[in-house]
Simulated scan of single mutants.
Amino acid sequence: MSDPARPERIDFSGFEAALRRQAAERAQAARTPTVPTANASRSRLTEVELSWIEKRQEHWIRFGRVAQERILTRRTRVMSFRPGAIFAFVRWTANDYGTVTSRIDVVRAVAPGEPYTTLPFVRPGGDILLHIESWPKVQQVLAAIDAVEMAGVDPCDAAPDHWRHVHNRIAAGHQPRPYTLERHRAWLKRREIEG
């Protein structure tokens, strides 16, 4: 019988051995290089789900450099964009009585760990440069995109500040200033200096 004043000795040898084994496994894992998998590389991309239901719903990309494309169903596909890529995402929905929603967003895809704003059908989200609702205003944005293309510049390469400018001017009820080659050259010089 044990003495009540003296506690029994507990054997920790098995516990200490398990701790040493776990520490060795962690050290080995830290030394082993990781090979990126398809899912890991996909997680670095911004994914946009596009869908089309005749006379009901249309989601499409107006411009953007697509890194990957996956077809999920006959009516649904997913477009992926690399960090830093700028794209325009248009959403239109209707019911039996006509158009319910019309929206366009110009978004910059973000890198992992970078802050972002959530947006429906965009995973994880992005840096929203322009967000316009209602078909007349969406048409103004589409005209601004056409104007950039007519100036000889791919809208993906236009200065992000231009899309913020277009957003602010249209939201205030004014016409946006055109994007010129001079402005584009100034943006390229600024990016060269900053980068």
Rank of each mutant, 00 (worst) to 15 (best):
S134F: 07
S134V: 03
W135G: 03
W135D: 11
P136I: 00
P136M: 05
P136Y: 08
P136T: 03
K137R: 15
K137I: 01
K137A: 12
K137C: 04
K137E: 06
V138L: 05
V138D: 02
Q139G: 13
Q139C: 07
Q139M: 11
Q140L: 13
Q140Y: 04
Q140H: 11
V141C: 02
V141Q: 03
V141N: 01
V141I: 01
L142K: 10
L142H: 04
A143C: 02
A143N: 11
A144Q: 06
A144N: 02
I145L: 06
I145N: 01
D146E: 12
D146G: 10
A147M: 08
A147S: 13
A147Y: 06
A147K: 06
V148R: 00
V148L: 02
E149Y: 04
E149K: 08
E149I: 02
E149C: 02
E149W: 03
M150L: 14
V153N: 04
V153R: 07
V153K: 05
D154W: 06
C156Q: 12
C156G: 12
C156H: 11
C156N: 11
D157I: 02
D157V: 00
D157S: 12
D157N: 12
A158N: 05
A158S: 08
A158V: 00
A158M: 03
A159V: 00
P160M: 04
P160R: 00
D161M: 04
D161K: 04
D161E: 13
H162Y: 15
H162W: 11
H162T: 00
W163R: 03
W163E: 05
W163S: 05
W163Y: 05
W163A: 07
R164N: 05
R164T: 06
V166W: 01
H167D: 14
H167W: 09
N168H: 13
N168F: 15
N168D: 15
N168Y: 14
R169T: 10
I170T: 01
I170V: 06
A172K: 01
G173T: 08
G173S: 09
G173Y: 03
H174P: 03
H174S: 15
Q175I: 03
Q175T: 09
Q175D: 15
P176K: 09
P176V: 00
R177P: 01
R177W: 07
R177L: 14
P178C: 11
Y179K: 08
T180C: 07
L181P: 11
E182P: 00
E182T: 09
E182F: 12
H184E: 06
H184W: 03
R185Q: 15
R185C: 08
A186N: 14
A186D: 15
A186G: 07
W187A: 07
L188G: 12
L188Y: 04
L188K: 13
K189I: 10
R190C: 10
R190W: 13
R190N: 14
R191T: 12
R191I: 02
R191L: 15
E192K: 11
E192H: 05
E192P: 00
I193S: 13
I193V: 15
I193M: 15
E194L: 15
E194D: 14
E194F: 06
G195A: 12
G195Q: 11
